[in-house]
Amino acid sequence: MSIERPVAPNPYDLLPATASFTVTSADVTAGAPLKDDQVAALGNTSPQLSWSGAPEGTRSFVVTCLDPDAPTPCGFWHWVLVDLPPSCTSLATGAASGPLPGSAFHCRNDGGGKGFMGAAPPQGDQVHRYFFVVHAVGEDSLGVDSDASPAVVSFNLAFKTLGRAILHGTYQH
């Protein structure tokens, strides 16, 4: 039996509008269930992502994964990767667990780790959406350190984002 709650809006629709650009993935299909590799108990592997068409003036990127459907008032952050260099336009499958390009680093996710945490909705809960977002940033550094919470990263992004590329998959136990 599935728990039914109202579906939360796309959280990025609630933020000030920015330019958009394209993100694609060999591992995530828009609106479709995630592969087992992207599920915490089955693979816990960050997906491959590629992006193009970032706005002029982009000086770094931030990659995040948010589940807005988690049974909390603020969703659940699965991945926060900060300060990717502007020359970086893709991440290989599993990149979150290996060396990162340039001076990029992970901030902690809501599971308490620094890296990617796969989908892990409660058993029997509604379908959850996982928003993989590449944020084009107009500064070389977002100005946070690896101990920053996802909320602090998001707050900084609110003032430094030039554009967003959004792709979401789903998962349900």
Rank of each mutant, 00 (worst) to 15 (best):
S25M: 13
G112N: 08
E4R: 14
P101Y: 02
V82I: 03
I166L: 06
P122F: 12
G98D: 03
H173G: 15
Q126N: 15
T170K: 06
S25A: 10
A136P: 05
V133G: 03
G143W: 11
N10T: 07
T58D: 04
P33V: 09
R59I: 06
M1K: 14
G43V: 01
Q48N: 13
P122K: 09
H168V: 07
T161A: 00
L66Q: 03
K160D: 09
A151R: 11
C107G: 08
N109R: 07
S103H: 11
P99Y: 03
Y171E: 09
N156V: 02
C88M: 07
V80E: 02
L42P: 15
R164T: 07
L157E: 04
G143F: 12
S90V: 04
C107E: 08
G57E: 01
A32T: 09
R164E: 03
T170R: 08
G138T: 01
G111H: 14
V80N: 06
M1H: 14
T170Y: 04
S87M: 13
G118R: 03
A165Q: 06
S52L: 02
L14I: 00
N10D: 13
D27G: 08
S25L: 14
A136Q: 01
C107R: 02
H128Y: 07
V62L: 00
T18F: 01
C74W: 06
S97W: 12
F21H: 02
A32Q: 14
A158E: 12
Q38C: 15
A26Y: 13
Q172S: 11
H106T: 03
V134D: 03
G102W: 06
S60L: 06
L91P: 11
V127A: 03
T170W: 08
T58N: 08
A32I: 13
A8C: 13
L100I: 05
P85E: 06
